[in-house]
Design a protein around this nucleic acid. Structure first.
Length: 534
RNA sequence: GACCCUAUGGUCUAGCGGUUAGGACACUGCCCUUUCACGGCGGUAGCCCGGGUUCGAUUCCCGGUAGGGUCGCCA
């Protein structure tokens, strides 16, 4: 018999990233084995559930490309579905539960208690044969020793999770239950229920949980907990899928970037890891960059236009060829589509918006390994020569002219510790607006010393208008020649020009963006910038 | 409190009774480079602790510690 697996979320209004991975692993197992992937909505808590909340789940799974073979087609609990084991909403399966509970009652396996119905739970330890964790012997806890029985029907007549979960898995012929490890302890109850119904329990596979970057439990409020946030931030579903595969599962051959088909081929339950994994946003971002770079043009344009639209930039007002040419200069240069409006908005805006200076700051909290090292060192010193201040600590690091890690340190007045990377005077590659302002100044001085014309007018008119062609290659040659003529490095011309035209010290290739932007716009912006800066 | 799971650099992981403990992200040095990004070549950093088994333990066993989960008329 082919495996039948299911993803059974509760519609709470959002899809947890951990839930998405549970869905993914179920889906992968079904696709790998040629089995069936079922989506079931556990909406027993009527007060909390809504059609919108179900839609969030459906759209999330669709975005990830996790198609289900059986399950609802819309968020409407009474609406259409596919598959022979419906309905796939628990709110529509009440009679089944009632019937099953009555059977248990009549056989003395359950009993009424204060208006509710409780299941007579065995007091013996139950062994769970888990495909990931191995055999687990679950004993009763001290509280359960007092009363091992648990409620299966509330006093208001509503069935409880443990009951409905088991009944549906039973009636839907689920063969493998792949779910989060948070259910491992509960599994003993479920096995006991299956046995009470006279059925052999399905196979279990409990997968490790996803934790926050700091190792704490990822809860609803944590950033990145909701799948929707990845869609909103402009992530690609293939990047998210790939990353999720790598959390708690390994192809075991050092591959990191795997296509969907490759994962389906390799995926199996025994390779699932047994320990929880922390969510590493940086690594996801890396994969995002990998996939973003190799996006097919059509899809790239579509996503880019959408990203601009979200930032209220209407690219449709521009000729299609212009939009495409503009976007071509950006491809492979950014990772998240949410970055695009700030990165390339200058192509489509009349006014230049001077973007905030995003030069990298070397501030200790972003530098965890070192921070921990420093903390260790500080702790040791504090223990040995207490009391010690941060100043003394720093002095000890600097003793003999060498710092601990070969870097310079500085402690500010508020006690914050900063690391200053060694300065390299030969490098001016980290362009900030400050640097650019300096270049403007150099250019202004050139004007008074060497030229009798207004510099901005002179240089840019000559450089940009005298040429017949306004093409990237020509522009590059002309600019470099002019720099030589002026006796300055090319960067002294390049960076002010970039800032003038784009409003950003970083961006696409200057020559290419000038070509796309065109002579008129480029010149107008340059002149305006000279008024502003010089 | 009880029960259950887990433990390889900062993070995700590969691996093995004898290895120079491998890869990726991040960090970092150099090269390339107009910036950003990409790419190339390097670097820092790891087997949680204590016992036991063994000629030998990161690997097997036990204990501790730490992290996570569960013990609901939530799911």
């Amino acid at each position: 018999m082919k495996p039948r697996v299911r993803f059974a979320p509760s519609p709470t209004g959002y899809l947890h990233i951990g839930g998405a991975r549970t869905a993914l692993f179920n889906w992968l197992y079904a696709r790998h084995t040629g089995g069936t992937f079922i989506l079931r909505i556990e909406d027993t808590d009527a007060a909390r559930n809504s059609q919108e909340a179900v839609e969030v789940i459906l759209s999330g799974l669709r975005w990830l490309g996790l198609d289900w073979d059986e399950g609802p087609l819309t968020g409407d609990a009474t609406g259409a579905s596919k598959g022979n084991c419906g309905p796939y909403f628990q709110s529509q399966r009440k009679e089944n539960y009632q019937r099953r509970v009555e059977a248990l009652l009549s056989r003395g396996l359950a009993y009424e208690h204060e208006g509710a119905v409780k299941f007579r739970m065995t007091r013996e330890p139950i062994t769970i044969h888990d495909l990931v964790v191995g055999d687990v012997v679950r004993k009763l806890t001290d509280r359960e020793e007092v009363d091992p029985d648990f409620v299966i029907l509330r006093s208001d007549g509503q069935p409880v999770f443990h009951l409905v979960n088991v009944i549906d898995d039973l009636e839907m012929d689920i063969t493998h239950i792949i779910r989060g490890e948070d259910h491992l302890s509960n599994t003993a109850k479920h096995i006991a229920l299956f046995q009470a119904f006279g059925v052999k329990p399905p196979h279990y596979a409990h997968i490790p949980l996803i934790l926050n970057g700091d190792g704490s439990k990822m809860s609803k409020r944590d950033t990145g907990a909701s799948l929707t946030s990845y869609l909103d931030d402009g992530f690609l579903p293939e990047a998210v899928i790939n990353y999720l595969c790598l959390l708690g599962w390994s192809p075991k051959d050092n591959r990191e970037k795997l296509s969907r088909a490759e994962v389906i081929e390799r995926f199996d339950l025994p390779q699932i890891l047994r320990h929880n994994a922390r969510f590493d946003y940086e690594k996801l971002l890396w994969l995002q960059g990998e996939y973003a770079r190799e996006l097919a043009d059509d899809r790239f344009y579509e996503l880019a236009v959408h990203a601009f639209a979200k930032a209220e930039i209407d690219t449709n007002k521009f000729p299609l060829a212009y939009v495409k040419a503009a976007l071509d200069t950006c491809k492979g240069k950014f990772k998240l589509f949410s970055e695009l409006p700030a990165y390339a908005g200058f192509y489509f805006r009349d006014e230049i918006i001077y973007q905030p200076d995003d030069a990298k700051k070397v501030f200790i909290p972003e530098n965890k390994p070192r921070l921990e090292k420093l903390r260790d060192a500080f702790t040791k010193l504090s223990e040995n020569q207490s009391p010690i201040t941060f100043d003394q600590f720093w002095n000890s690091l600097s003793r003999g002219g060498k710092s601990l890690m070969g870097d310079e340190y500085r402690i500010t007045e508020d006690g914050q510790l900063h690391i200053l990377s060694p300065k390299n005077e030969n490098k001016d590659f980290h362009i900030t607006k400050e640097t650019v302002a300096k270049y403007f100044e150099i250019l202004s001085q050139k004007k008074s010393d060497d030229f009798k014309y207004d510099f901005g007018t002179y240089f840019y008119r000559v450089f940009l208008t005298i040429r017949n062609s306004f093409e990237a290659a020509t522009l590059e040659l002309a600019l470099k020649a002019t720099a030589t003529e002026l006796g300055v490095k090319a960067g002294v011309l390049i960076h002010p020009t970039r800032l003038a035209v784009t409003g950003n010290p970083h961006g696409p290739s200057l020559y290419h963006l000038l070509e796309v932007l065109g002579k008129e716009k480029s010149l107008a912006r340059i002149e305006k910038a000279f008024e502003k800066f010089s």
